[in-house]
Design a protein around this nucleic acid. Structure first.
Lengths: 138, 138
DNA sequence: TTTCTTCTTTAAAATGATTCTAATCTGTTG
DNA sequence: CAACAGATTAGAATCATTTTAAAGAAGAAA
């Protein structure tokens, strides 16, 4: 709970649990991502943030890590803009506002919006996820 | 109605109405796009299709044209996958199934699905559009 | 701890989609 | 038809992301 006393133990366990070796880079990135509430980041943003926090990580590792975290179910990818991927630390059922002016994402809690009557998926397929993006402008 | 008799007159008028010069390329692409029911295409797909139909158009023009048609409200862009853009000839209110296996889009009519209680957008913003993507797998 | 093996990280190159550039060509209008 | 504005094009440029192959770090065993 007190990150000044046990700065890495939480994320350390998290990484162990999903079978990822707790390396310096993964521990540092996990802390940036998970110790500050729900976050929506692009690879470039996280890279800049890491540099800022004195964490030396290459951009390739940022991409690897974001993809591994997503594959492990610790994050999810949100696709809202052509040519750029956002990663979301909130994996619970919820949706998004997308500010078209600032290119920022904002959570909509799962219970604040819902889809009535999701149509039957085509024969032979099953629904993997329903994404709702509410695009807004200033 | 009979495209063998008046092959270009419909799309010709459409282009005129939105202020785009009816060039050979735009007329040909418009015919491929609008004379065959609702379509979802990527730039590469449309390029291949044009070549197939003996319509010589560069890829740069495909991109220009798709963006111009979208800007003119004749089509809309659908973002479902990082790194690839889909363009949809159906501009009416509706949503999409996305087949993750085949990377294909399929319309969900606007009245077959709906969002209950779209939350109030943040102060100073207004909703531009609500996109629902139902991701399915085989 | 030393060693061995396996997984990670990295810089740099490669890729893939899209946009830009600058030169050439084509519609439109007079 | 002439002239101009707008459109098309090949190829270069750009941007986000992935791959490569080499060097480095973590875990297990002795």
């Amino acid at each position: 709970m007190d990150s000044s006393v046990r700065p890495y133990s939480q994320v350390y366990d998290t990484l162990r649990n999903v079978g990822l070796r707790p390396t310096r880079q993964r521990l540092g990135l996990a802390r940036l991502l998970f110790d500050n509430g729900n976050r929506h980041v692009t690879a470039e943003q996280l890279h800049a943030e890491a540099a800022n926090a004195n964490l030396r990580v290459s951009l390739a590792t940022i991409y690897n890590t974001l993809n591994q975290f997503t594959g492990a179910g610790l994050m999810r990818e949100v696709v809202v803009e052509p040519g750029r991927s956002y990663f979301d630390t909130n994996t619970s059922d919820h949706h998004h506002f997308f500010h078209e002016d600032t290119a920022e994402l904002q959570d909509i809690p799962g219970d604040a919006i819902s889809v009535s009557a999701v149509p039957e998926p085509p024969a032979g397929t099953r629904v993997k996820r329903v994404d709702i993006i509410v695009r807004i402008k200033g």
